[in-house]
């Protein structure tokens, strides 16, 4: 190999090295570190004892409290994902098939991405709160005399999550609907299928990759949240990430917090791995880019 070729081959690695180093040192090494750390012990005095102790893992894996919250976290994420899919599919279909201002519709859909998550989450207090829009309207109309308590339960947590995650779902479905040749639908109808049949037999199956990508994003992002339950949930609506936050920030039990984080990572990572195995990451990147 001549020296010019060698330089040519080196150049991309020089360009890549800062980013690769950053991700390596700030993500992968820290992840390996917390694996090690999860086997350490935090003593009552606050000092860490290095070593190979299974105590944190025993607590994280056997304590019914953690298990119940893990299950309810997965349930909340699953319900959120299903609601997003049901609500988002027709909207995505509308955007993909409308002949009007597709750009405007997409831009409107992108706008929530630019509006702060915490603002969008807390905005529901203005709607559902004791002196929120719904209670005020009902009281002004004389339907109720006392405000109804609608906030701070699991339903409002799911509502907040759906509001946050719906654009991810719609965008992913839209991307895959856009990629479908509309002639296929026309062909199906001209061969005698009703529009509904051609949708069920042709369009829906072809758009499943987008639906799956959107579903994965909604589930993983939903299951990893701790802000939404803190803002819109009640005292019993903690999700798994709240436990991590409690262990790390409040109790300062970092080895236990490491074990809990890794549990969450393992469960959600398994889903990503299954997705990657069957559908590959390309579809997901299409939706993100």
């Amino acid at each position: 190999m001549s020296s010019v070729e060698a330089r040519e081959a080196r150049q991309p690695w020089i360009l890549l090295s800062p980013a690769l180093t950053a991700v390596g040192l700030l993500l992968f090494v820290p992840l390996i570190f917390i694996v090690v750390y999860s086997f350490w012990l935090r003593t009552a005095t606050g000092a860490d004892v290095a070593g190979f102790h299974l105590d944190n893992w025993a607590e994280a894996l056997t304590d019914a409290f953690y298990r119940d919250i893990l299950i309810s976290t997965l349930r909340i994420a699953a319900i959120t994902t299903v609601v997003c899919a049901l609500a988002g599919y027709p909207a995505a279909y509308f955007i993909a098939r409308s002949r009007g201002n597709k750009m405007i519709l997409l831009l409107l859909l992108m706008l929530p991405f630019w509006i702060s998550y915490i603002i969008r989450t807390m905005s529901w207090i203005n709607i559902l709160g004791v002196s929120g829009a719904i209670n005020s309207a009902l009281m002004a109309l004389g339907v109720i005399s006392e405000p109804i308590n609608m906030l701070y339960n699991e339903t409002t947590v799911i509502l907040g999550l759906v509001h946050f995650l719906l654009p991810f779902m719609i965008l992913n479905i839209y991307v895959s609907l856009e990629g479908i040749d509309t002639n296929l639908e026309d062909a199906a109808t001209s061969l005698g299928a009703t529009r509904w049949q051609s949708f069920l037999e042709v369009t829906l199956p072809l758009s499943l990759p987008g639906l799956a990508a959107g579903g994965l994003l909604c589930f993983v992002l939903g299951a990893g949240t701790y802000i939404t339950p803190l803002v819109l949930g009640g005292p019993t609506d903690a999700m798994f990430a709240n436990l991590v936050f409690e262990a790390i920030i409040t109790q300062l039990n970092w080895p236990l917090g490491s074990a809990l984080s890794l549990m969450l990572l393992a469960v959600l990572g398994l889903l990503v791995a299954i997705y990657n195995r069957y559908l590959g990451m390309a579809q997901l990147m299409k939706g993100l880019g």
Binding site: L26, L27, P30, L31, F33, I34, Y37, V220, A223, G224, Y226, A241, V244, F245, I248, W254, G257, S258, S261, L262, L264, L265, L268, G269
Partner: peptide
Amino acid sequence: VPEVVLAVALLL
């Protein structure tokens, strides 16, 4: 990686 996990790993 869930952001909470990334946050914990980097912090610790």
